[in-house]
Amino acid sequence: MRGFIQTHPFHLVGPSPWPFFTSFSLMNLAFSIALNSHNYMNNNFFIFLNIFIILYVLTLWFKDMLAESSYLGDHTLAVKKGITQGFYLFVVSEILMFASLFWAYLHSSLNPTMELGMQWPPAGIEPISADELPLLNTIILLASGVTVTMGHHALINGNRADTLNGFMYTTMLIILFVMLQGLEYKYAPFTLTDGAYGSTFFSLTGLHGIHMMMLAMMLLVCTYRVYNYDFTNQSHLFGEVTMLYLHVLDMLWLFMYMIAYWWGS
């Protein structure tokens, strides 16, 4: 009998193939992107295949994690503390990554070189106007902040219908944001290869866009978990970190809007 009693609050994870598969598919993705960028391959097939494999493996991995938390009860208070800390470290690393890209943007724009025509936006570049589509995108993000805060309020007060509505509206707003950003890219008067301006602009807003796609997936899973009665008004760690992530990304977008669109054009 003694063997079935756990004398510590931690979750000792069992053997799992998913970290192994994730590592291999990530390595394949990196290789196919690098080889593709250097013209060793003349199609995007392996890039899309590897993105699909990563998403598939991560789906299986996170499905296991949802089972461990909701059905097996492995996520004790101590485990949740560890997950929160891990997520915070992840957010800090994200912010540092964005900081380096902001640095690159400001490095190129604050002291434009001879090759850029000593001006920012560089000579011949027609920037995207800050008061058109980007403003609408900013308003959409602000609205998503409102709906997610409404969802959080309903969640901690045990109102199931409003929690579901909040998460659903937020998911739709984030998807709308990604679609509008895609349109903006499609009709942008400059490209990724248009010198320092194109590189810094698209790496900044593109990284944010990829994070927004991930956020949309996280919100979709949150909506499903609310629908599936996985969250209680006391225990909803995934919901909390998703909301925090949304707020951090909104804040980063505000900086991006101010620096890249408002000051930069």
Binding site: T138, I139, L142, G145, V146, V148, T149, H152, H153, I156, E240, M243, H247, D250, M251, L254
Partner: peptide, 19 residues
């Protein structure tokens, strides 16, 4: 959790103000 809700609201409010 109540404070988190409060600060989320501040976040939205300040961002709206900025915009």
């Amino acid at each position: 959790k109540k404070d988190t809700q409060k600060y989320f609201r501040y976040r939205v409010g300040f961002q709206a103000f900025t915009l």
